[in-house]
Amino acid sequence: MKRIISVLMENESGALSRVVGLFSQRGYNIDSLTVAPTEDETLSRLTLTTDSDDRKIEQIIKQLHKLIDTIKVVDLTGGSHLERELMLIKIRAVDSEIRTELQRGAEIFGGNIIDVTPTSFVMEMVGNSDKLDAFLETVADIEDVEVVRSGVLGISRGEKFLRV
């Protein structure tokens, strides 16, 4: 089952490499990983997604916790939560029929066209990963497509705050 794990850790050099190293060292797989400092600059918030069974997830969470720089670890998929991913997509679009169709597609999926040339579009789209996948399927026939995704960001719903 796909899990979204949030990690709050010291914003120290080497902290990220310890997390990445842990996954490769213990044979866990990471599907996506995103990390940046938080509003408190001494802290980093890291979100990673992984596809593993319950037993392995339990080990992953415990192992992440064991890293000295780690302050908190939460499996967001264990409760009610929100997830978002940002995607930027560049598409070759020369003939007007395709250009119109892409504009309509962007509208339906809630994307914005943020750059236009006579032969291409750049679009931004935010949503959960399934939605982004679904949009990519609609442009699967177009040959020249460049995609960059941020990886999943997640936050729990309700009154609990993940902070120090």
């Binding site: 050099s13 080497g14 490499s17 310890r18 190293g21 060292q25 000295i68």
Partner: peptide, 12 residues
């Protein structure tokens, strides 16, 4: 980097 998988922690 070299010692990372075999230490409890490390500092530079």
């Amino acid at each position: 980097g070299v010692s990372r998988p075999i230490v409890k922690h490390s500092f530079l």
